[in-house]
């Protein structure tokens, strides 16, 4: 009887190990096959040319993804600028200010945002945000472009940042708050001088996670960004008008063209995927690094 139990134990141990290995294997395989498919592009076009040329005309044999890298970068930056203050405000409100019953309403609402399919965000962007942005009176402004995409993306990364940041703020020890309030600080002073600095690393990793989510978003971006392969440029003297320019993201490049691509064109799209893979890996590992540093910092 005992022996049977022990045997069952070992069997469970191995099947759990198998589950863990399977997920590693899947990641490795996706990485391997993406890279293998991209190899002809790296060989025939060259990594340098791919990364530094801005003209993408597969029909003419020109494969440069610089415009897409800049497009992805700008739209992500725009989303962070618009979304982070909102998300942090939300997180602070939920963890420090809201009463439990209000929190019970607001928190599920924000979590619901994470469950809306991205194509619905895209549709919303296309019929609501784009016409509003079109109202900005700048020549050549059609509403489709970085600003609309950034607004949509800001809403999409809101739940990620809010929930991670809220968790970080909640895990600031209660004694910190009590100490601060006991010394005569107001609630806002406590939040500003004690709680936010205490949760800083958690908040930073929340932002970085949101950044990773923003970089990977595809379908909603395709629907509102215009997808033109151009390096975004200002259309008036105002440097902010760069956000009215159309652009294409790395993810959008793959999704828009993969259906029709063959040969080197297809391989170049896989190469776009590899570059995206590397970018997101950098973003995610920096989030992990910041998080691990954060937990150490708290112990000190």
């Amino acid at each position: 009887m005992r022996k049977n139990k022990k045997r069952f134990d070992t069997a469970m141990k191995y099947s759990l190990l198998f589950a863990a290995l399977a997920s590693i294997l899947i990641v490795l395989m996706i990485g391997f096959f993406t890279f293998r498919e991209a190899l002809p592009a790296f060989r025939d076009i060259g990594l340098g040319k791919l990364l530094t040329e801005s003209v993408w005309r597969p029909g003419q044999g020109q494969y440069g993804i610089l415009a897409m890298i800049i497009g992805s970068g700008l739209v992500t930056a725009g989303a962070v600028i618009l979304g982070v203050p909102l998300a942090l405000g939300c997180a602070i409100f939920l963890s420090e200010i809201a009463r439990p019953n209000l929190r019970a309403i607001v928190k599920p609402c924000i979590e619901l945002l994470a469950g809306i399919p991205s194509v619905v965000y895209g549709l919303f962007g296309m019929v609501i945000i784009v016409p509003i942005v079109r109202g900005i009176d700048v020549p050549g402004n059609t509403g489709f472009g970085l600003l609309s995409a950034s607004i949509v993306l800001a809403v999409m990364i809101l739940p990620t940042i809010t929930s991670v940041a809220e968790h970080a703020i909640r895990s600031v020890p209660k004694e910190f708050r009590e100490g601060s309030l006991a010394m005569g600080a107001t609630k806002w002073e406590t939040i500003q001088k004690v709680i936010i600095p205490g949760a800083r690393s958690g908040i930073i990793s929340a932002i970085v996670l949101g950044l990773g989510r923003a970089l990977g978003e595809t379908i909603a971006m395709i629907m509102v960004i215009g997808n033109s392969v151009i390096i975004p440029a200002t259309s008036t003297g105002n440097p902010l008008s760069i956000f009215l320019s159309r652009a294409r993201t790395l993810t959008g490049n793959i999704a828009v063209e993969i259906n029709y691509a063959t040969g080197l064109h297809e391989s170049a799209l896989f190469a776009t995927g590899v570059i995206l893979f590397v970018l997101i890996m950098i973003v995610n590992s920096s989030a992990r690094y910041l998080m691990s540093r954060g937990s150490l910092g708290k112990n000190c």
Binding site: Q60, I222, G226, N227, S228, V229, I230, A255, V256, N259
Partner: peptide, 14 residues
């Protein structure tokens, strides 16, 4: 060539 700044959409419907 079709101008680079054209809005590109991935289907007839779009």
């Amino acid at each position: 060539l079709i101008v680079d700044s054209a809005i590109l959409q991935p289907s007839n419907g779009a």
